[in-house]
């Protein structure tokens, strides 16, 4: 009985350590990306859905970030992961190409490959279809629907960009920018202008 209690005690400590380890490691790795990662800006189209546990968010549909030419000849069948090579250009930041083997240097991002779409298209082109591993920007409950409403009504020429911090194949969405202003700040200005 005593041995069992001791064993359960050890298990108790182990569970606590694993839980704290996972939470702590997540915080550390994401903070590191935010601190040391390179910034890239991508055009996005936001929509407003809801998560019962994490609250309201705007879904980000990244423009020009769902297909890119394959940059290596590694067989791509049955691959679920690939690496998007990112680059800064004068027209803006973009995904240059896709690789199926992990790059040793440069800025790249691990993405999910859509195998069915890839299989359909391989015979006609060398294009890889994929989705980015993030598509959410969480906002305060009352702000998310407003943000979506305002963004839907906006002038088509107004650019909405998401800034990503990228480090060693992982990325974190840093902020949403409208005409170079952070979304929350832009919304505040927009509401002030309307009330005047």
């Amino acid at each position: 009985m005593k041995r069992m209690q001791r064993l359960l005690g050890i298990l108790f400590g182990f569970i606590c350590a694993v839980q704290l380890g996972v939470i702590g490691w997540s915080i550390w790795s994401y903070e590191r990306i935010l601190k040391e990662g390179e910034v890239y800006f991508f055009n996005v189209l936001p929509l407003d859905p809801y998560d019962a546990f994490r609250g309201r968010y705007v879904t980000l549909r990244f423009e020009n970030a769902n297909k890119a030419p394959a940059g290596d000849t590694t067989p791509q069948e049955h691959r679920s992961k690939a690496y998007a090579i990112l680059e800064h250009t004068q027209e803006g930041d973009r995904i240059k190409e896709m690789r199926f083997s992990k790059p040793v240097s440069g800025n790249f991002l691990e993405v999910n490959v859509h195998s069915t779409m890839a299989a359909q298209k391989t015979d006609v082109s060398n294009t890889v279809y994929f989705s980015l591993p993030f598509d959410r920007f969480y906002l305060r409950e009352d702000r998310a629907p407003k943000a979506e409403r305002i963004l839907r009504m906006r002038d088509v020429n107004v650019s909405v960009k998401a800034s990503l911090r990228v480090l060693n194949g992982k990325a974190v969405i840093e902020n949403l920018w409208i005409e170079g202003v952070p979304l929350v700040e832009w919304m505040r200005r927009h509401e002030e202008a309307r009330s005047r």
Binding site: Y30, R54, L132, D135, R136, F137, Y138
Partner: peptide, 18 residues
Amino acid sequence: TGASLAIIGQTYHLGGSM
């Protein structure tokens, strides 16, 4: 445990489904 994970998820705008 769920609440902690949810806060981490929203703080870093983590993707992934429910």
